[in-house]
Nucleic acid binder design. Structure first.
Lengths: 185, 185, 185, 185
DNA sequence: AATGAATGAGGTTTCATTCAT
DNA sequence: AATGAATGAAACCTCATTCAT
């Protein structure tokens, strides 16, 4: 088996275990069992340590998340449209890729480089500034509003992660309305 | 020393440790050191197990949090006013009682009865419904809006917990405006 | 069992294991077996880590070694006499306390503070200087001669540790003569 | 690549690693990294096990050491002269080939056949006996004096290995004087 | 009520060695 | 001859919990 394939297999198993049992209960032993590996030594063979594994798992999830969102962003031609598309895509990711979304939320506090886990803030603030410059948004503080919008994103995802009964489509509709009201000129 | 006093002492130490080092690094050993206890056995003696300790610590923090917030809710005579007071009080709790607030955020995912950690939702939804009945709020889904508002509360607190440089008063002002816009009739 | 007694027991077991199997093969598991402990965790309970254990074991051996030697030093009234007594006592320690002596040699390279393991050099050089000042010794470089004398001490002990057939009393007589010739005025 | 060349390459890397990091930290992994090998399996392929590798590395270092010393022994025409040349050459080996000298000292305790590591003793005793027969040396026990002289050799080298600031030439001069005094008729 | 030593399971990690290719 | 992934034992260490005193 090739290095890349094995790493991918381990990462996939880790995502599942984290999503099901949470970060705390995610041990090398459980990942190895889930992946059908013969020993935990194999994980150490492919990853320098637990932190590297966590970082790579998170990076992989983030990559899929980002790709998913970006794919749904290109059609937007206004800042407000882009913001709507961003929020919609975020919620839909939970519906379409539950395990990854849950793993994303659970791993975030344990990623070694905080920057990676919070990479969205700057981009979001820039988008808001652009929308203000274009006259689409009212005159709020873009850095603070960025905190609000990402808090909404994360909070709704967390709620959906905790309670599978949450109606994500309904959340999406209501969220778009509320954000529109809170940001428009 | 009385049973109650001992438990309070242990809980106080646990709050500090959780706030400083996070849930993961919070072991009986560290709590005992912080509290100046002679043995971790003393913790096991007063609490049935780690989960009970965690639950009680969270309950205690939640009690203080709730008291703090309720104290600032009395004066409100409208639903919108109460909502504003609730949000303000929440943010101010972080400024006034940082350790408790951080412990609250860090313990929440590990509390055994989910109900406890999310007790706010029903009350918030009821408040929103009352406001809608009184014609103060527009016609959103109160359960969903409740998710949003608590997501904002938690997200802003989390951000402030991670980054002490966040200007909580500015957040408060902007948050009240945004929520007003998103909820008013 | 009291803390002190347990530590002493573990240290005693460690001395035996190191003397018999060498540093490399000295694991917590083997020490625990030798001491009749239920688990290696007990060692970690009494010593912060392996390095602390090693350091304490060495310190204990060194203490016994030093006491043994000092007890045989006080009768000397000249520097040359003290030097002879020192060398004699060193060799006799091997004969009288073989396990400690072997452990001393085997642990020395792994002690964390080099200073401790090489504490003799300064004192030896001082003794040599005193002897030169008193006209007992010829005009060698005392720091270098100190290296030679301790090299002789260590080398002979090492030889005796490796080969139990070495006649230590004969070594002692010959060593005193050789050192006398090499150092006298 | 030829078998012999590969073994030599591995041995060379092992010498460096042992000299730099000590025996304990010398793993197949580090040797492979140092040698630029693709896998630790290659080491196992060329050496039956770790012990064989250690033995061969030591044998190789010993060979170079011996050659170096023997090259400087030819000119001596008396036993005393040969002894002086031997000691000088030993100290100079450290100055000229530090890595090999340090590896020699660090590997010696781990060589499987003790005989190899202590091969010098018999030859040294023979030299001493010859010197006594020729009337150059006084009437000491040659086997014991052999222990002393090799202890001096090893001790000084060890000291120089631990502390690069030791002045080897000064040691050499002082050593020759001391040994002359201790052995001459 | 309190102590503090003891327990044993479980964690991550390193290691020499093996094996299919 | 070489590769590099795989193996499984063994290492040290931390943990919550138990228990005799």
């Amino acid at each position: 088996m090739t290095e890349q394939a094995r790493r991918a297999q381990i990462i996939a198993a880790a995502i599942e275990v984290v999503a099901e049992l949470g970060y705390q209960a995610t041990s090398f032993k459980r990942i190895a069992q889930r992946a059908g590996l013969s020993s935990t030594g194999l994980i150490s063979y492919h990853f320098k340590g637990k932190q590297e594994l966590v970082d790579e798992v998170f990076a992989e999830v983030l990559r899929r998340f980002t790709t998913f969102v970006l794919d749904r962003l290109d059609r937007a031609d206004t800042a407000a449209g882009e913001l709507r598309a961003f929020l919609s895509a975020n919620l839909r990711f939970m519906a379409a890729h539950r395990a990854e979304a849950v793993a994303f939320l659970r791993l975030r506090p344990h990623v070694s480089e905080r920057e990676v886990a919070e990479g969205d803030h700057r981009k979001m603030a820039d988008l808001l500034r652009a929308g203000q410059a274009a006259g689409e948004f009212r005159d709020f503080d873009p850095d603070i509003m960025s905190i609000f919008l990402l808090a909404l994103r994360t909070g709704v995802l967390t709620r959906a992660a905790d309670d599978a009964a949450v109606d994500i489509e309904l959340c999406e509709r209501e969220l778009l309305i509320a954000v529109e009201l809170a940001t428009r000129r």
